[in-house]
Structures are given as structure tokens and as C-alpha cells.
Amino acid sequence: MPWPIPEQWINNAGVIVTTLLVALIVRGLLARTIRRVTKMMIRDASGKRLRATEILRRAADMSDERYAARANTTASLLRSVTDIVIVVIVVMTIMNVLGVPLAPLLASASIGGVAIGFGAQSLVKDYLSGIFMISEDQFGVGDWVQINDKISGRVEEVGLRVTRLRAFSGVVWYVRNGDITQLGNSSQGTSTAIIDVPIALGADPGPAIEIMKQVLTDMAAEEEWQQVLIAEPTVLGVDSMDAVQTKLRATADTLANQQWGFQREALSRIRTALHAAGIEDPSMPPTADQQA
């Protein structure tokens, strides 16, 4: 004769199974909702755009790739938080069904949590800082950043606890997220190319300025530089003078961290054009016509 199963056990088993099923259904619905919202956000942000519109979006660090990475990272964090909350609720419900007293357990957990909290303050701070930095998209892999006015480099990895940078010299830095109090990102927004061209003090700046305008206009019309520039270059004219030279200045707004290439090419072309026009820099000795 089989041993009779107490009715209370059957009821408890039914409640536990029901709780697990409900938890799985709720988790599935929440995960599906997060996925659909993420896909909708990425789909709405993508599509065909004019070149100028896309360049402005890239300048504002709103490119489709960066936006998708940020949306996926946020969705991953939301799924992790959802799983933790559901697991805690299910475990507490099952313990309550089994008759385990929760009050002493919660009190002990509170005391232990306080003790652990004091011992792991820096760890909790690192993780919280990492969550906020990732969700707010303060920087991402490939960005050139400066941390606490001490460390600068290109971001190679962004974790919840540690961020890894590689300095220009090749040194790899591991920075705890909780220690980041100041952060400068050179890869977001726009950059400005400053083009300073010195000419001899006795030279007429008018022709030199016209040459600079022509060279920069020609560069802005080239396809290569159209992908870098977000506005037409501007020749400001004479910027300063001293005992030996007159300095002419031009500026150009570019995508973030793209100013150096344009600046170097512009200086090379302008110097060549000035030389062809007979306008030399201050280091060159004056010609016979200039001496006369």
C-alpha cells in the first residue's frame, strides 16, 4: 500500500509550480518587450539620409552604429536587472510556501548586507559608475578620452568595473570606473582644424589670404574631405604680427578627431601655393625685388 501524500504537500507543490510558470512567462514577456523596443529604437534611428544630415549626426555622435550599440547595451542591463528581480521574488515566494520564516532571514540578510556593503563599497561604486557610464554613453570603444586630467588614451574595452585605455605611447591603463571623477571625450561632437600660415612681415597679406581661400575651397570640393568637413572652411585673415612675421589664420570644423589630417594637408597645399606665387615664409631671405 503506497504511503499517502499529505494534501498540504500537494498544495505547496502546486503553488511552487505555478509560481515558477508565472515567473517564466513574465520573464519571457519582459524580455520580448525589451527586444522589441530595442529593435524599434534602432529601426527608427536608421534609414537613408542626405550626406549633410548624416555628417551632422556623426558630428553629434549619433551615428546608427553607435546608437545601436548603446541601445543593445542598455537592453542587456535591463534584462540582467529583470532576471535578478524575478529570481529574488521567486525564491522568497517558494521559501514562504515551504514555511521558512522570512523575518529572521531578512534581518540576517540586512545585517550581512550592511557588513558586506562596508567591505565592498569601492566594488559597488565601480559597478554603479560603470552602469551609468554605459547607459549614458559617456564614451565607447574607440573614443579618445582623458580621465581625471592625468590619463589619456584610446578606449579599448568598457566594462562594468574597469575601463581599459591604451595611451599614445602604447601603455595600457586599467582604470576603475568608481575612480573616474572627470572625463573628457575628444571623440564626441566636433573638432576644429586651426591653420596658421606665417608670411614675411613685409609681404602683402591680401594675395596670401586669397590664395588660402582658393586652396581651402578646392579642398572642400573634394570627395575625400567632404566626408570630414561639416562646414566650409573660414579664412579669418591676419591673426597676429611680430618683428619678423605676419601670421594668417583659417579654421575648419570637422568630425571629431578628424582635424589633424585636414590641417596637415591644408598647410602643405597652402605653403606650396604661396611659394609658387612668390610669397615666402619669414625664414626665407628677401628677394632682390623685396630688398629694392
Results as ranks from 00 to 15, higher is better:
2 P>L: 09
4 P>W: 11
4 P>L: 04
5 I>P: 07
7 E>D: 06
14 G>R: 11
15 V>A: 12
19 T>F: 01
20 L>G: 13
27 R>N: 09
30 L>I: 12
31 A>I: 09
35 R>D: 09
37 V>H: 06
39 K>W: 13
40 M>I: 13
40 M>N: 03
41 M>L: 14
43 R>E: 06
44 D>Q: 11
48 K>Y: 10
51 R>Y: 05
52 A>H: 07
53 T>Y: 03
57 R>S: 11
58 R>V: 03
60 A>K: 14
62 M>A: 15
65 E>Y: 05
66 R>E: 14
67 Y>L: 15
78 L>G: 02
78 L>V: 05
79 R>G: 00
82 T>Y: 12
82 T>D: 08
83 D>L: 11
83 D>Y: 06
84 I>W: 10
84 I>M: 12
85 V>H: 10
85 V>T: 04
86 I>N: 07
89 I>T: 05
92 M>H: 09
93 T>K: 02
96 N>I: 00
98 L>E: 08
102 L>P: 00
102 L>Q: 13
105 L>F: 08
111 I>K: 01
112 G>T: 04
113 G>Y: 01
113 G>T: 04
119 G>Y: 09
119 G>P: 00
119 G>K: 12
123 L>C: 00
123 L>S: 05
124 V>Q: 06
129 S>H: 02
130 G>L: 03
131 I>N: 03
131 I>P: 00
132 F>S: 10
133 M>H: 00
134 I>Y: 01
135 S>F: 08
137 D>E: 13
138 Q>H: 11
145 V>P: 02
147 I>M: 15
147 I>N: 13
148 N>M: 01
149 D>I: 04
150 K>V: 13
152 S>Q: 11
152 S>T: 05
153 G>L: 06
153 G>S: 07
154 R>D: 07
157 E>A: 15
157 E>F: 09
159 G>T: 00
161 R>L: 10
161 R>F: 12
164 R>Q: 10
165 L>K: 11
169 S>R: 14
172 V>Q: 08
173 W>M: 07
174 Y>E: 15
175 V>H: 14
179 D>W: 10
180 I>V: 15
180 I>Q: 13
181 T>K: 15
183 L>E: 14
184 G>S: 04
185 N>Y: 14
188 Q>K: 15
194 I>H: 15
196 D>S: 14
196 D>E: 15
201 L>W: 13
202 G>S: 08
204 D>C: 01
215 V>S: 02
222 E>Q: 12
229 L>P: 06
230 I>P: 02
235 V>E: 05
237 G>I: 05
243 A>W: 07
243 A>R: 15
244 V>N: 15
246 T>W: 00
247 K>S: 09
249 R>N: 09
250 A>G: 07
251 T>S: 10
258 Q>F: 06
258 Q>T: 03
263 Q>N: 09
264 R>L: 14
265 E>G: 06
265 E>S: 12
267 L>Y: 06
271 R>Y: 07
272 T>I: 11
279 I>P: 05
281 D>R: 02
286 P>Q: 01
289 D>W: 00
289 D>N: 00
290 Q>F: 02
